[in-house]
Nucleic acid binder design. Structure first.
Lengths: 152, 152
DNA sequence: TTTGAAACCTATGAGCA
DNA sequence: TGCTCATAGGTTTCAAA
C-alpha cells in the first residue's frame, strides 16, 4: 500500500470538495508551498491513488431523470469478465458491480424515462445469458461527494 | 429543463474525461474562443447542470479495499427524509439511494475490512428503526467515468 | 453570444537548503 | 522532502461587434 500521510489526505479531501482548486489555494490551506503541493498531487497520481479528475453533473437537468439498479443473476458457469463486458457495452450503464453471492451483479443505469428503462433492462437480459433480473427504481439519491444529486 | 446545445454537451464530455482540462484546450477542441468556453461552463454551473468538480480516487490504494451495498427495509411509517438523514451520518456511507418498492433504500459503503463492514452494518441497523438488511459484498467494480476503479 | 486583448494568477521546472 | 525564483501558460474581465 502506498505511503500517504496526513497532508496527502488533506489534499485529497480538498480535491474531493473541489477538483479544480488551484495549487496555490491548497498550499495555503495545507500550510505548504505551491510547488510542494503540486509535487504531492503528481506523486498521488503516479501511485495510482488519484486516477483522474471529473465534473459532477446533475443528469436530471439534462433530461436523464431516471436512475435504477438492476440485479442480475447468471448461470454458475458464467465468467465474471463476461458479465462486466456485456454490461459495459450498454451505454446507459453507469457502473457495474460484481457481487459475492446472490445476485451476481448489480448494475447502475441512468435513463430518460421508464420506457427507456424497459429497453435497457431488455438489452441487459439479452446481452449475456442472464437467468433473472430484479430492478430497483431510484426515487432519490444522495452521495457524499455530491455526485448525482438526483431528486434532492 | 435547461437549454443545453451540442457544444455544451461536447464541453461536458471533455470535462467528464478530465475535470481539470484548461479552457484553452477545450476551446481548441470545441472550436470556440477561450472566453466563450468559459462563459458556457459558468452558465452550466449557474443552471445547476454542473454541480461541481471532483477527484477520482482509488480507495483500495488507501486501505479502504472493501465496498458493499446494503439493502435496508423500514416499517411503512418511516419518512424518506429520516432514512437519508440517519444513513448519511455514518461516515463510511458513500451514497444513499431511496427505492420504490422493496427494499426501501440501497446504501453504498466503503470500509477497510470485513470487521469494519460488520460495524457499519450494525450502526446502520441501530440508526433508524430498520426491520431488515441484506448486504451485497462487491468483488469488483467498473464505472463509466473511471470513478472507484476497485479490483480491476 | 462571440471575439481579442490586457491584467492578473497559476503552473511548472530548475536550483538549492 | 522542502523552499524560492523565473517564465511560460492559463484565467478572467471588458469593450466591441
Amino acid at each position: 500500500m502506498a505511503e500517504v500521510d496526513d497532508i496527502d489526505h488533506h489534499v485529497l479531501r480538498l480535491l474531493r470538495e473541489d477538483g479544480r482548486r488551484t495549487f496555490s489555494e491548497m498550499a495555503e490551506l495545507v500550510g505548504l508551498s505551491v510547488a510542494a503541493v503540486k509535487r504531492r498531487v503528481d506523486r498521488l497520481r503516479e501511485l495510482g491513488v488519484i486516477t483522474g479528475f471529473s465534473v459532477q453533473i446533475d443528469y436530471s437537468k439534462l433530461g436523464w431523470g431516471i436512475e435504477a439498479f438492476t440485479e442480475l443473476r447468471y448461470p454458475g458457469t458464467t465468467p465474471v469478465a463476461e458479465i462486466v463486458r456485456t454490461a459495459t457495452e450498454v451505454p446507459e450503464v453507469q457502473a457495474v458491480f460484481t457481487i459475492a453471492g446472490d445476485p451476481d451483479a448489480l448494475i447502475h443505469v441512468r435513463v430518460r424515462d421508464l420506457g427507456h428503462l424497459q429497453q435497457v433492462i431488455d438489452r441487459l437480459r439479452r446481452a449475456g445469458n442472464v437467468t433473472g433480473t430484479k430492478t430497483l427504481l431510484v426515487l432519490g439519491s444522495w452521495t457524499r461527494d455530491g455526485m448525482s444529486p438526483h431528486a434532492r
